[in-house]
Design a protein around this nucleic acid. Structure first.
Lengths: 113, 113
DNA sequence: GTAACCAGTATTAAAAAGGATACCGGTGAA
DNA sequence: TTCACCGGTATCCTTTTTAATACTGGTTAC
């Protein structure tokens, strides 16, 4: 039994759905920061300069809504907040990694004439 | 001889370079439209609704600047303008295709809970 | 001749994204 | 006690993006 082909309109819709989730300058860099080991708010902020706390705060909320990031609060003294990736977010990293390599090459393409 | 590892900062920079090129709602859908066979201005516009001609016009210029699209003018009567993909743009399609499939699944993930 | 299509441009406005700066209450170290 | 760090929020402002609408000059189809 064969899968139905994806129509032109569906392709555009799916693509736009993805773009809607990852849009803007910050969401993917923030995910990458967490992936690379930054879990604390200030830590992420230092990793992805020069994002302001206002913007980082709102990006993290959107990432949470899209089930890409989990926010955990530990009731220690002082209170500790940790951001971690969901397992679902792993599905996004093949795309992000391709984008990293593409950006690296693109720099050469544009510079090299 | 081993390649040097990419540092944290470079990763973020390359990623941001890529995001800078593809940012916004329209550039990737426009590339996809051309890929799927739309070469004329109005044809692309119909393929990617509801983009206005003003926005499409400026997106196409940016795509040209980044060597992803070629604009050819045929001096016929009436004048004919054709947009085609560069071979370089092919390097972007693995990313775009992953994004199409990711968007398809993401819809289920968000809806299904 | 009038309507419609072509490839856009012009003008204006609205909405969204992002940035600057200051500040909060709490803790901990010097 | 003063300073710095933590995880943010509040307020205000600028820039960027996107949209709405109209229009141009030329061409073909009815």
């Amino acid at each position: 039994m064969k899968e139905r082909e994806i129509s032109d309109k569906e392709i555009i819709n799916y693509l736009q759905d993805t773009l809607y989730v990852i849009n803007g300058k910050w969401k993917l860099p923030v995910l990458m920061a967490i992936k690379r080991g930054s879990t604390r708010f200030r830590e992420i902020q230092r990793y992805v300069p020069p994002i302001t706390s206002r913007v980082l705060s709102s990006e993290l909320k959107l990432l949470e809504q899209n089930k890409l990031v989990t926010r955990k609060v530990y009731d220690e003294i002082p209170v500790l907040v940790e951001y971690t990736l969901t397992t679902y977010s792993e599905t996004l990293f093949p795309i992000i990694e391709l984008m990293v390599y593409w950006g690296k090459d693109h720099r050469k393409v544009i510079a090299g004439k």
